[in-house]
Each structure stands twice: as structure tokens, then as C-alpha cells.
Design a protein around this nucleic acid. Structure first.
Lengths: 254, 254
DNA sequence: CGATGTGAATAACTTCACAGCA
DNA sequence: TGCTGTGAAGTTATTCACATCG
């Protein structure tokens, strides 16, 4: 969800669909697990099951990368790991800065999944002078005054924002001004960035709200199923529907 | 991304598209901000800008909920807040358990965005006996032995998994057996659940990998742009393309 | 044979553009 | 007149089904 889109008129690039790109890390994870178990080859069916997708989709996804499989056999695990890693740009080192070392920032700094994928936490940055110098995940937190210097000296192009929402945009602006072109935003704010900068967002509260929607729906369907004898009225129009709880809205439109 | 899909043959339900559901929390957040500033009405254009989408999409999304706007004027902020909240099921209380109180679990427990949206952390659960009794975010951590009891006594239907990946599936199984029907999974594992249980996943490492992909692509495009005089060769075939770094794969297919 | 790779068909989502109502 | 609500058109993604090749 949500990337800056088209950094350019898409100069006849290889054009891997965004949906496919978003699944490559999933395949990579499954393949890495197979690799660790020294499994030499895998079929689209098996790999798809391990990655939680269906096999047709997986084969179509791989077809955008090239013909890396062997008919009648399947895919060579090591080879695929390499190809996908390369495609994702994980064969190189990506220094990352995390800005905002609260609970979440610290959790991310400690998260093991980064290092194993080519990501390296180059610096932890916080605006609180009291945090400066403290060790988090074995790295000394630095004050945000030096943000620009840290970024340019370490050649950082990816920034992670785990600040409170109120300062996220200004942190973002400074990151961009300092040369960052990819941002992972955990603050519940819409960031505005110039063209050419990618933003991806993770909002914990949004995920829960989506679950709540489906959860509520289940409850409604269950109720509907229980009085199977009396089916719902036919002329069911959204504009008059008061939804699960029959309450009348507290406020009416002007 | 990734929900269990079709809990039933979709019994002619109101059928709000999944993509729309995923954006409702975004609109709600923007509307809440307007509400706090006592803005009475808002146009699709303004609200769309605040939510980071385009106005046509927003209007189409709202059209699935009903006709809640006023032509020539816009939308009543308070009324929309109520309607979207109700649609998402946020007018009711959702007790949530968090299993796995490491860095991330603690960060979530402390996250303020939950309470304000109808979510209430009913319990923090950890398998480590040494954690039991410790206070995190003002809540005492409980040992996972009592998981089933905690869930049934509190009527919990949403569980958050922040355990190490190795135990995520078994935690998931226990949650489901105890009656949980919605799971937010932070462990980098594919969970398998029976029909009727929704799983959403958040994988921090995956988000970074997607950013890396685009970041790498930018670098490639930049290089291509710099030698504008010598355009890339025409017969450019994915199966022979060695990508950004010209390295030959370490392993070849069988 | 067995599993890949892929055109063609279908479905989901987005954007356009404008009729229609306040 | 201004902005919503929505058919229609366009785009992207998924699934089907089978030719193809090791």
C-alpha cells in the first residue's frame, strides 16, 4: 500500500508489477527457510503453500523475473534465492537510520530481521538530549542535531520514522533535504514528500481497525444465519441502512 | 494485504470492497483531526488531500457507505466520523490480547492509538515465567498458561502475536482454539488458520525490502539517464538480464 | 509424464467525466 | 454555481487452462 508511484514516465523499464514486488520478500523468506533445511529444489505448488499464496500467482510472479524454473522439476532453491535477492536489491548493503527511539524505535533497532536481509542500522537518532549517548541494541543514540551529517557521511538512503506524529513531517523534511529517498513511516500521519521519494507506511491502529471491520461483519452474518427462516428484506438500500447496531446517528447532516 | 478472504459464499452482503475498507481508517483519522479543530464540513477534495488519496477515489469509497454528503457543500465532519466508525465497528469495545511481550509487544502495549479507537488491551501474555507479574504500560503481564481462561473470561476476539517466529504458529493455534477469530501477526511467519479466522500480517522487514527494490531501481534509472547519448540495447530480455550489478549468479539451475 | 510458463478470461480497483441535486 | 455521486472507461491484478519442454 502507498508508494509515491512513477518516479519518471516509466522509461520502458522492466516493469515488474507492484503487487508482485510486494510478494517477492515473502517468497524469499520461504526459500531461505528451505535453503537452511538444504532442500535443493521446490515446485511452485510447495513454495506457494509455504508462502501462503496460490501456485498460479507464484508462477506468474516468477515469470516477470525470467524463466528460472525447470519444467517437470521445479525451481532450484539457491538459484532462486539469489535471483530474488538481486531483484530486490538485497545483494547490496543498505544503511538505515531510525529516527525516534521510543518503544517502537528500540524494538526496530533490536529486530533481527534487518541484518539478515542486507539492512544495517547505521544510526539511531532522537531529539531528546537525555537519550543521546544511551546504548540501544548496542548502538549509541545520537542527537538529531547531527542528522544531516550522519546521513551524508554514512551514505544513508533509507530512513525509518518512529517519532510521535506531531514531528513526523518535519523529521521527514529534514531527512529528504539530507538526501534520503526512501522512508518507512510508523507515525500515524500522512507525509508529503517531493517526487522521487518513496514512502511506505505501517499503521498498527489501521490494521486493527480492518480486523474489527471483518470481526463485526462475522457477528452480523452469524446473527443473520441464526434466523435462517426469516431472510432479510429485499429492498436493502445502503442509504437507509443503520448497520449492525440499530442506533440512530448522533448528528445529522446540515 | 492478506486476509483470510471469503468467510462464507458472501451472502449478498453489502459488499464494501476490501480496498475501500483499508482506506476507511485513513479517512477516519483525517476526519478526527478536523473534528478536533472544530471544522464543521469538508469537501472531498480537502479530505482527500488530508488523507493522501485523490478525491475521485474518496467519493467512490464513500458511495459504498451511502450518500452522506451534500452536493455543492461537502461532508458533515461529525456525521462522517460517526458513520465510518460504525461501519468499521469502532462504536463498540474490542478487547485485545497481546502475546509475546518483548520489545515490540511492549511498544504496542504502550501505543496510544489503540485506546482512542475502541481497542482495549485486555491482557499481556508471555511464556517467560520471569515476565509474569511485571508491569508493562500499567498492565501486569500474565503467563501463557492461563491464555485460554483470559480469552474466554474477557470475551476477547482479537489477538496480536508478537512472539518469536518459532512459536507463532502454536500460539496462533491456541488463540484460535480459545475462540479468537481475528489475528494481527507481527511474527515473520505464514500462519495457517481455519476458515472464518482472519489474519493480517505486518512484517517490518518486508516493507524495507520493498523500499530497497524501488531504491535500487532509482539508482539504475539514474545511471541510464546519465548516458542519455547511448540508449540501452533493444533486445532486452529478462532471462538474460543480470540486473544492476553485473555479477553472474553463484549457482546455476540443475 | 509432470511441472513450468503464459496467453486469454475474469475480477478488482482506479480514474474519468459529467449528470443531477442542493 | 459547486460539489457530490456514479455509470463508463481504463488499468492492474488474479485465475484459468493448456501448450510446451525437460
Amino acid at each position: 500500500m502507498a508508494t509515491g508511484r512513477t518516479h519518471r514516465p516509466a522509461t520502458r523499464s522492466r516493469g515488474i508489477p507492484e503487487a508482485t514486488v510486494a510478494r517477492l520478500p515473502l517468497y524469499l523468506r520461504a526459500l531461505t527457510a528451505l535453503s537452511e533445511r538444504s532442500v535443493p529444489t521446490v515446485s511452485s505448488e510447495e513454495l506457494a503453500a509455504a508462502a501462503g499464496v496460490n501456485s498460479a500467482k507464484l508462477r506468474k510472479d516468477f515469470s516477470y523475473l525470467g524463466s528460472y524454473g525447470t519444467r517437470g522439476v521445479g525451481y532450484d532453491v539457491e538459484y532462486l534465492v539469489y535471483q530474488i535477492s538481486r531483484e530486490l536489491g538485497l545483494t547490496q548493503d543498505w544503511p538505515v537510520v531510525i529516527v525516534g527511539i521510543g518503544n517502537l524505535g528500540a524494538a526496530l533497532a533490536n529486530y533481527g530481521g534487518f541484518a539478515s536481509r542486507g539492512f544495517r542500522v547505521a544510526a539511531l537518532i532522537d531529539a531528546d538530549p537525555a537519550m543521546a549517548g544511551k546504548q540501544v541494541a548496542g548502538i549509541a543514540v545520537q542527537h538529531s542535531d547531527g542528522l544531516e551529517k550522519i546521513i551524508s557521511e554514512n551514505g544513508v538512503s533509507i530512513g525509518v520514522i518512529t517519532t510521535p506524529p506531531g514531528v513526523a513531517q518535519q523529521v521527514c523534511d529534514r531527512l529528504v533535504a539530507a538526501g534520503i529517498t526512501s522512508i518507512l513511516n510508523f507515525a500515524p500521519t500522512v507525509l508529503s514528500v517531493p517526487d522521487g521519494v518513496d514512502v511506505r507506511k505501517v499503521d498498527l491502529s489501521i490494521e486493527l481497525q480492518i480486523l474489527a471491520f471483518h470481526e463485526q461483519r462475522k457477528a452480523v452474518e452469524e446473527a443473520a444465519a441464526s434466523d435462517a427462516a426469516a431472510p432479510a428484506p429485499a429492498g436493502h438500500d445502503a442509504s437507509t441502512d443503520q448497520g449492525p447496531d440499530g442506533d440512530v446517528p448522533a448528528v445529522m447532516p446540515a
